[in-house]
Design a protein around this nucleic acid. Structure first.
Lengths: 158, 158
DNA sequence: CCTAAGAAGTTGAATTCTGAACCAAGTGTG
DNA sequence: CACACTTGGTTCAGAATTCAACTTCTTAGG
């Protein structure tokens, strides 16, 4: 009597879709990183800058920023230290909760963001957005949104 | 006279699609990593194992493996060293080109692969494939394939 | 042949990332 | 109020990654 459940392997089509997805993923990340390099920024740096620049007062609590970027507190702490040394952000105390800190975009950080953003958008267009039809893009969003929701609800679980 | 070209910012829809894509990307990577952890493997480890196990004689030249996984030679070298220490692969000399080395799956590597693969497939299904309809999956593949081709042709360029 | 150029890999130092341990400050409960 | 518990964040040590030499072997030219 078979107790082990037979593995539900991926069909050829599924396999192919999955691999394509993985490939795009990796190559796109790689390319974005390359396109950011001339400006002395990494993908991580840029993501922090985006998050801060879109927040009220260009500031975010460390833990919110960590959650938003799906990084560990530890990693974010290091990351912000580096960006602080680069003059892009600074840490500021939180009045209402004295354990807390804000990461705040500096003037230089803001300028950097304004300078780099157009190039980054161009890069995103060139290597992704503009290669998809409007319909394909809409489909992509609709297909991926439930996946995103699923994964968001799954944080930290097995 | 304006010499600078106005930036072609992303529309709301484009922005949303792009962010969803990025989010799925990050969360999915994270989740795959977590699901592999109980087996003592990382995503990188697993990818190497997949590549090797699908190759003739369960072996690949170091540089081919590096190209296939989009890693630098250096990184792959370190990675293989680690996996060698874990008994998953071994290095073997190449007869026809004495500079060359093969990374070869060991018996233990093969067994590990056989043990882990079903769980990994289940994970891929649970967090991605099974959340998409067959049609969505086909669309995804068709949409992403040109992106993959574009990026493949772009390796290393600005 | 002999040499220069290039390809295959490795190595080592500097940087980044991870995970656990830690400190300090807020929260809630009897 | 005092206690334990949680939350916000940093720090340290160990592991992984990057980057720039460096070694060995191959190949192409003269």
């Amino acid at each position: 009597m078979e107790t082990e459940t037979a593995t539900n392997w991926l069909s050829d089509d599924e396999q192919c879709a999955w691999r394509t997805y993985l490939d795009v993923n990796r190559m796109l990340t790689y390319q974005m990183e390359k396109d950011l390099q001339p400006f002395g920024l990494t993908n991580n740096d840029y993501e922090i800058l985006v998050n801060l620049s879109e927040s009220a007062d260009r500031r975010m609590r460390m833990s919110d920023l960590a959650a938003a970027t799906l990084q560990s507190k530890s990693r974010l702490s290091h990351q912000i230290t580096r960006m602080e040394n680069a003059g892009l952000v600074r840490r500021e105390n939180c009045e209402s909760d004295r354990r807390g800190l804000f990461a705040v975009l500096t003037e230089h950080g803001t300028e950097t963001m304004e300078k780099v953003a157009p190039h980054h958008v161009a890069s995103v267009r060139r290597h992704f957005i503009d290669l998809l039809s409007g319909e394909a893009l809409a489909d992509l969003r609709e297909s991926l949104a439930p996946v995103a929701d699923h994964l968001r609800g799954h944080r930290g679980k097995i």
